Computed example of a mutant assay.
Amino acid sequence: METKPTEISSSKMHGGFNKRFRHFSPTLGCFMTFHIYFPPSTESSQKFPVLYWLSGLTCTDENFITKSGAQRAASTEGIALIAPDTSPIMLSKSCTLTAPLICIPGGLNVEGEADSWDFGVGAGFYLNATQEKWKNWRMYDYVVKELPELLKENFPQLDTTRASISGHSMGGHGALTIYLKNLDKYKTVSAFAPIVNPINCPWGQKAFSNYLGGNKAHWEEYDATCLVSKFHDLSASILIDQGTDDNFLHNQLLPNKFQEACEKVNAPLLLRLQRGYDHSYFFIATFIDDHISHHAQALKL
C-alpha cells in the first residue's frame, strides 16, 4: 500500500499555501487526510519550523484551516501549520486524484463507532487504544511518530526538529498530554479550552473506559493533570486560554484541576480566563495570534 502523501487540494493564502494531502497510514490501517499551511518562502533552501494543531470532538483536519485565521500570523512568523484529522477514517471509493472534491469520510465499520458525537469517529482522543475492538484508534502514535516521519521524508522545506504543539478541547487534551510525555520533541505547548482532567469528566470517562478498558491506572497516562505532577523540569511556559462563558467549563474541562497540579510542582502555567467567550472557533480566532507568537518565540531560538 502506497504511504506517500498525495496532494488533493491547494489554496493560496497570505502569500503561502493551504495544501491538503491524502495517504495510507500503517499505524491506523486506513487512509488519512491532513493539512499543511506553508508560509511564503523567500529562498528555495528555507526550512520552516512546524506547529501541530490537534482539533476537537466532531472536527476533521479542515476546521482549523478554514476557521481559525491562524495563517496570517503563521505567514508573518514563518511557521508551517500541520493539522491532522481527529480519528481513523475511511474514504469513499470515489475519492480519487481526479475527483478529490467527492471524498466522503466515514468510519471503519466498527460497531458503535458512530453512535454518538463524543466517541468513535471524530473522537480519537489522541491515545493508543488497548482494547481489540478499537485497535485502529492509535492517534497518539500517528501524531507523535508516523506523521512527523512522513513530513520529514516528503517535505524538505519543513524542519521537523523544531516543533511545537497546540489544540482545542479534545485536541487541547491531546496537545498537553503529548507534550508532557515528549518534552524532547516539542519546544512549547498551548491550548484552547482543553479537557485537562479527562479521568474526572464524562467525555474522558466514556472514551477511556472504551478505548483503554477498566484499569484506571492506564487512564492516568493520558490525563494532563496527572502527568504534570510527575514533572519538575518544565522550562517553557504552558499557555491556556479558557472562555468564561464556555458551556463545558465546569463539568468537562476543569482547568482549575490542572492549575492546582501545576502549582504543586511549580510548573510554569499561564492560564488566561477570557471573559464572555465560549467554546467556538470565534474564541479561537480572537486569540490565535497570541498562541502563534508564544510558539514562535521558542521555535526560533
Rank of each mutant, 00 (worst) to 15 (best):
E77Q: 14
P194A: 11
L239N: 05
G276S: 07
F192K: 00
N18P: 07
L127K: 01
L151P: 08
S293K: 13
I292Y: 10
E260Q: 12
F31K: 13
K4L: 04
K135D: 06
I199Y: 04
S10W: 02
I89P: 06
I65E: 06
G204W: 04
G174P: 06
P39H: 00
N18R: 14
C201S: 15
G16V: 12
L299N: 04
E2C: 00
W117S: 13
L57P: 03
H250M: 14
L51H: 10
L254N: 14
G204T: 02
K187M: 12
L176I: 10
S45R: 12
G122S: 05
S55R: 07
A261V: 15
K185F: 01
I8W: 09
L158K: 03
T225A: 05
E149P: 01
H295D: 13
R22P: 02
P255Q: 09
A83T: 14
Q71I: 07
I102F: 06
Y211V: 14
L28F: 11
Q71V: 03
T58E: 06
P255L: 07
H250V: 08
T286W: 10
P88H: 03
V144K: 02
A83G: 05
T286V: 03
F125L: 03
G107P: 03
K181M: 08
S87M: 08
N210A: 15
N109R: 10
I102A: 00
L91K: 00
C262M: 08
N109M: 10
G29M: 12
A74D: 13
G69Q: 11
F38Q: 06
K257Q: 15
S41C: 09
K145Q: 15
F283S: 07
G172K: 13
W134H: 01
L147R: 01
A74T: 13
A217F: 11
P268E: 00
S45M: 10
D290F: 12
I36Q: 00
K216M: 14
S190P: 10
D184G: 08
H23R: 02
F17T: 02
G112N: 10
K257F: 11
I284Q: 05
T244L: 09
A175V: 04
S293Q: 15
D118L: 01
L271G: 01
L127D: 09
M170D: 13
V196H: 03
D246H: 01
E2L: 01
A193T: 09
I89T: 14
W203P: 07
K181W: 05
K93R: 13
W134A: 10
T3K: 07
F17R: 00
W219G: 02
A73S: 13
S75T: 07
F287R: 03
K135Y: 00
A193I: 08
D159C: 10
F21Q: 03
W53T: 14
G106P: 11
N247R: 02
Q259P: 05
V144D: 09
S164Q: 14
C59H: 04
K257G: 04
N251D: 15
Y37G: 07
Q252E: 15
N182T: 08
V228I: 15
A285E: 15
F258V: 10
P202T: 06
